[in-house]
Amino acid sequence: MDVITTEGLTKYYGSTRGVEDLTMTVPEGSVYGFLGPNGAGKTTTIRCLLGMLKPTRGTAQLFGTAVNLDGSELRRRIGYVAGEVIMFEKETGRWHMEYVSGMRGAKPSLADELVERFEFDPSKRVRELSKGNKQKLALILGMMHDPELLILDEPTSGLDPLNQEAVYAVIDERVAAGRTVFLSSHILSEVERVCERVGIIRAGRLAAEESVHSLLAKRLRELEVTFAEPVEPAFLASVPGVDKVERIGERTLTARAKGDVIDDVIKRLAEKTVTDVEIELASLEDVFLEFYRAQEGEDPSDDSASDAETPARDDAEGGEVR
């Protein structure tokens, strides 16, 4: 069953675009990464899913039921952590936990455990909390009722690496328990760490959707090769899939290899005597940025660019570029 379904979801604020023609599905029990830079439309999408914003066009469904602006029952099954954490400044963390529990009409089954794991002091007023501690409180409030669907908007913003890891661990556990997670982020390492599938939103539109595995398979590789003798850049640049070849000194070349070309690169290197070689995998972040650049037409030779212009589903990896 699909937990989240949107069909042509569009939201405009007057003439300003929020999100446009967004069609996507998130299956039950999956961790879906919703990836895009600030202002791409991630939060708008989430607010439409939660019934806080009225879509200009299109539909949004949760658990197979259309989202209703004035509905409340769907939200009983959802835990939400907002991107910008705003709470009642004069009240304590404990007060917020009771406030949320009161409206849910249920005891927060995970509250004590989360308070302990995040090392959070619920007796402090929100105005006394640091940004990171406010984020912890938001996470506790969103997760403490063990909802079927967790919607997390930049959930680790302001957290130190230890607490970030604690959040990832909690997400892993919730998913293992059969819960669904919709994680909006612009931090690619976060998406890489926890998500199975990723939708890339750009300028309000879903630009691509594929599995993280597939995205990682498209990783870029940065090469630095030192030869025993002077060598011209054309030596590497002539390998299909290799570009941005630069020479450092007479005997060292740097280059970027994209896609499944590493075998060709190694075969070409074998034609000369190599004294040193470094092959470094680019991060998902670099892949993402590369993808964006390609979409903006900065590098027409890019593989991603050609994908983007040809709407097609990658059956092997379940990828789709729009």
């Binding site: 019934g51 806080m52 509905g71 409340s72 939200r75 705003i86 009642f88 409206m103 009409g105």
Partner: peptide, 13 residues
Amino acid sequence: GTMELTLAQPVSR
């Protein structure tokens, strides 16, 4: 922004 916290809960407008 506190309305967002309230309306994220199962309570109707």
